[in-house]
Write a protein that binds this DNA or RNA. Sequence first.
DNA 1: GTGAAAGCGCTAACAA
DNA 2: TTGTTAGCGCTTTCAC
Lengths: 346, 346
Amino acid sequence: MIRRLPTLEDVAREAGVSRATVSRVINGVRNVDPAIQSVVLEAVARTGYAPNRAARSLVTRRAETIALVVSGAGDEPEGEQGSFAARMLADPFFGRVAGGVIDFLRPRSMHPVLMFADSEATRAEVVAYLRQGSADGALVVSTHAEDPLPEQLADANLHCVLFARPARPVPVSYVDLAHADGGRLAAEHLLARGCRRLATVTGPLDVPAGQDRLAGFRDALARRGHPYIPIAEGGFTYDSGAAAMTRLLAEHPHIDGVFVANDLMAQAACEVLREAGRRIPDDVAVVGFDDSSAALSCRPALTTVRQPMEDMAGKMAQLLQEHVEGARTEPTSVIFEPELVVRDSA
Amino acid sequence: MIRRLPTLEDVAREAGVSRATVSRVINGVRNVDPAIQSVVLEAVARTGYAPNRAARSLVTRRAETIALVVSGAGDEPEGEQGSFAARMLADPFFGRVAGGVIDFLRPRSMHPVLMFADSEATRAEVVAYLRQGSADGALVVSTHAEDPLPEQLADANLHCVLFARPARPVPVSYVDLAHADGGRLAAEHLLARGCRRLATVTGPLDVPAGQDRLAGFRDALARRGHPYIPIAEGGFTYDSGAAAMTRLLAEHPHIDGVFVANDLMAQAACEVLREAGRRIPDDVAVVGFDDSSAALSCRPALTTVRQPMEDMAGKMAQLLQEHVEGARTEPTSVIFEPELVVRDSA
DNA sequence: GTGAAAGCGCTAACAA
DNA sequence: TTGTTAGCGCTTTCAC
């Protein structure tokens, strides 16, 4: 019995063949005599051999690992709210994206490395991590508009795929949603149920998702004879949603329908409306966006524009894999369609 | 200009020294002439050198990576609820643990690999992953009592640290909470605010956390002259909490205080109570457990027993690091104390 | 304080 | 179909 972990060499000796043959069996290369193959397999079992990943990576130049990185601004106050990582982990949006990525990766026996970057230093770490070959590529989710990470990765010639179109054009692949169509869906639903004094709590207006949802909403309304709609800008967080709804209500107490640009803010809006004595949906109808877990935990259950995030995340992972394998060389984009989910709030 | 990525060799040539010297500078080994050191550093900058992780791991026998694995039963119905990974990511409990781990790791420039295992096959993958040296050890969070993973890891001589004591003894380190003390805190608070007809929604009674929280609660009550307390068993999920509270209310309509073994179920319980026309805390006081994000999103805000999960998770990561580095060889356990957080529900 | 040289365990040409 | 051999890029004795 040898003390150190068994190596290819040990298995080869045990099976009475060469290292190369064992390697072929392990890696499922065809051209191997079935008889020899089973002899090798037995030797593997007997020795309890497990291929050393570092050694393999060194020669294949593949880490067989991808990074899932969330990149933020780094200008937010730390403290009570918890760390950036903790905040992101608590966000139902991130959960669905991560879940989608993992479900794509798992059947392929791959597991993502989780990275959170909210400063130049941590972003540099992400770049370094990939440059060292610790991961073959990155899936990046940005939390704010001018995130420099995508460009840094592109400049370093590293593989990456983004969730959502970057605010400034960067030559990398991304998946995204037809946000404007989602805004339209919300507008039409509110109109159809008879609302006439509409308003909206928007997302941050410096990111495409925020802009496009608003544009689609306004657009559909304008076509139906509603040229002006009061708006209040939010930041996609619960608190910002509550604040925005409060402002809206103060300035326009008679609104009977509101489109809120994501579910977390919509949940906050419902809370504010309820505390202001408004019944939902009777007095004010509320439509959210995302169909995240917040939509279900909201009372009443939220009517919302569903973003198929798991599918989007899976696609994102698939695109990255294609880039890594060289099956795809040019950046591409895949845009998904939103869908209205009608529940109780509108 | 060379096409391939720069290697130590390239930097050495550029700096006019040997590979060994460059390696020393990169790794911050002392015995290096300051002058040479800066020459090397310049050469590194000029070439844009980044050490290859696989090559380093091959010789150091360290992956400098740890796995964060969530191990579940695999007997739960897939489907509407989403995949195991998605469900865990949506759970505020997991979010805090992961956040704590990440915040410990980040200053050390380490990033966890996220793995979800809910079947024998996926558990075997976790073991294989570690045996290949892809990660130096595992942090494991089990979602059910008889999780075989800890034992499998221990048998394979792999480093691991658990979150919570395993149901059956396994020779591995773990961090845990003094759950019984938490139950006691809840009992005393409820009694102190004048509740006299108490009941409890427990966690699953086949896991230590479920048992101990109940035991502590009962114990404190028994000491104060309340020998019998109605209970309803839940499974730590929202739905199971709602079901348990419904049963409790049907059988004991006059309860005026309830201890619910985690916040997610407590949130569900509040919902059930509210729909049954009970005011919280006036008619029924509710105390939760964990102080997860559910405690804050609950209406009214939940009075709860706080589990310092971030600290626990950080400690878990620290213990693992000590094991990996060989600074600690014997399994150990660290038990944290819970703390009552008084909000509006009790 | 620095360099030469020996591997770490594996894959992939290339030969046989 | 199988074996031989040459590295992949790095750390680490061991001399000097």
